[in-house]
């Protein structure tokens, strides 16, 4: 990481889901791991999330959903990022996401899905490795 700017993460809650224990917890964990974190709060549309990524010059967008709307929201965010020239941004997701949905989300451009019980340090490592190789 030396000489490079800190990894900047947007943590976002797409849709109307109010469960943000995980999102807030990760925001704290990322900050402690030396990343810069912006938490968007609840009820974000894909447009709002991408706008935040644009404004904040984000490296990573973390999406959290527990209400079963990931198949719509996550690909939509990736798509809008591309449309805005932000295809470099790493998109990761978490929440209640059935295994069978994961391949589809990955095909759509979500780099990883972290389900319940994932160690936070594994998520941190995943992100850091993505950026150390660049």
């Amino acid at each position: 990481m030396t000489g490079k700017k800190r990894i900047k993460v947007i943590m976002a809650k797409p849709g109307l889901d109010g469960h943000d224990r995980g999102a807030k917890l990760l925001a704290r964990v990322f900050a402690e791991a030396g990343m810069e974190v912006v938490y968007t709060g609840l009820r974000q549309t894909p447009e709002m999330i991408v706008e935040a990524a644009l404004q904040e010059d984000a490296d990573v967008v973390g999406l959290s959903s527990l209400s079963g709307v990931h198949n719509y929201f996550f690909p939509r965010v990736v798509e809008l990022l591309k449309e805005n020239g932000l295809e470099e941004v790493l998109v990761v997701g978490g929440g209640i996401i059935p295994d069978e949905d994961v391949p589809g989300l990955k095909d759509a451009g979500v780099a990883a899905i972290f389900g319940p019980g994932t160690k936070t340090e594994d998520i941190v490592t995943f992100i850091q490795e993505k950026f150390s190789s660049n």
């Binding site: 889901d17 109010g18 209400s67 079963g68 929201f73």
Partner: peptide
């Protein structure tokens, strides 16, 4: 479902993907 809980009708833009889910 979440649209009902947040006071939106099913055809509202923010209800996208949430109708009848939780």
């Amino acid at each position: 479902d979440l649209p009902t809980q947040s006071g939106y009708d099913s055809d509202h833009a923010l209800s996208m993907g949430e109708v009848g889910k939780v």
